[in-house]
């Protein structure tokens, strides 16, 4: 782990960890790089979908993760959030090793993802979908939901949550379909529902897998503005997106994944002028 060939800032945090112990280093990494991925590897049968991906995401940034189809972006998301377990490598979130944790444990720690193909809960209404998201609800304890006296506490919290839910619904412009079953929504509406739902979990970091696919341009603009607002408040975003203009205009840092590996990373300008990237995108598979 401590070989000298790592990138400079990575070594810096490593040193801190050694000197200050895990607590102090946790704070340190929280501030700089909440998410660090090292040597992540996963193969499915013969295909190595992710092949030693190593990168980190800066706190409060909107980082883009790009790459041709099949580059392993979604699989990387699955590995980070515990949906599938890596063959090798580590994932560190806010200074804590979260490799191999269950998805809910990752979500509880403040990192939530959306899915590339929207996974709405189709026989639940949009409202029910949204009300599900907030963390640590009192009424998730069976006894509190059932016993007469304490159920009032649950009711109170439900009322608070409901107000927030309606605000978010208004913001995402899906309030008019609030009582619709999620399975009846259009593709774009499902995407919106998913992002709204993820935001309601109140995460520190959001992993968005092609969130704008099928969303109309006006709303896309509005959502991006909102993402920038949240970013200024300290939220961190990792965004998978095929629209290069969108990535170049909105992300301050871009990671290019190719055949499961980080091909290069840098500012949008670096990426734009990078030969390898052009080749990976335009020249097909090397």
């Amino acid at each position: 782990m401590s070989d000298a060939s790592q990138p400079v800032d990575d070594v810096a945090t490593k040193v801190d960890e050694g000197a200050l112990g895990s607590f102090a280093s946790g704070v340190q990494t929280t501030e700089e790089y909440p998410l660090r991925v090292e040597g992540l590897r996963k193969s499915f049968g013969g295909i190595t979908a992710v092949d030693g991906a190593t990168f980190q995401v800066e706190s409060g940034s909107l980082t883009g993760l790009i790459g041709p189809n099949g580059a392993g972006k979604s699989t990387t998301f699955n590995l980070i959030t515990g949906m599938i377990k890596p063959d090798a490598g580590t994932v560190t979130f806010n200074g804590e090793d979260i490799t191999g944790l269950d998805p809910h444990e990752v979500a509880n720690r403040g990192m939530v993802r959306t899915f590339q193909i929207a996974r709405e809960l189709s026989e639940m209404t949009v409202l029910e979908n949204m009300m599900l998201a907030p963390q640590r609800q009192r009424g998730e304890e069976l006894w509190r939901s059932v016993l007469p006296g304490v159920r009032n506490d649950v009711r109170e919290q439900e009322e608070e949550l409901l107000e927030r839910v309606w605000e978010v619904l208004d913001f995402f412009d899906i309030d008019h379909i609030a009582e619709e079953y999620a399975g009846n929504l259009s593709g774009g509406q499902r995407k919106l529902l998913e992002m709204a739902r993820a935001l309601l979990t109140d995460p520190d970091m959001l992993l968005l897998d092609e969130p704008f696919a099928g969303v109309n341009p006006t709303l896309e603009k509005k959502l991006l503005e909102h993402i920038h607002e949240l970013r200024e408040q300290g939220y961190t975003f990792l965004l998978v997106e095929h629209d290069m203009d969108l990535i170049m205009n909105n992300c301050e840092h871009v990671i290019v994944l190719h055949q499961g590996r980080v091909l290069t990373e840098g500012t949008p300008d670096d990426i734009r002028s990078n030969e390898e990237v052009i080749e990976a995108y335009l020249g097909g598979n090397v």
Partner: peptide
């Protein structure tokens, strides 16, 4: 209900 619909989603939402 969420588990019945799609357990992975419920899990990804921290349940």
């Amino acid at each position: 209900k969420a588990i019945r619909e799609d357990e992975d989603v419920a899990n990804a939402l921290g349940k």
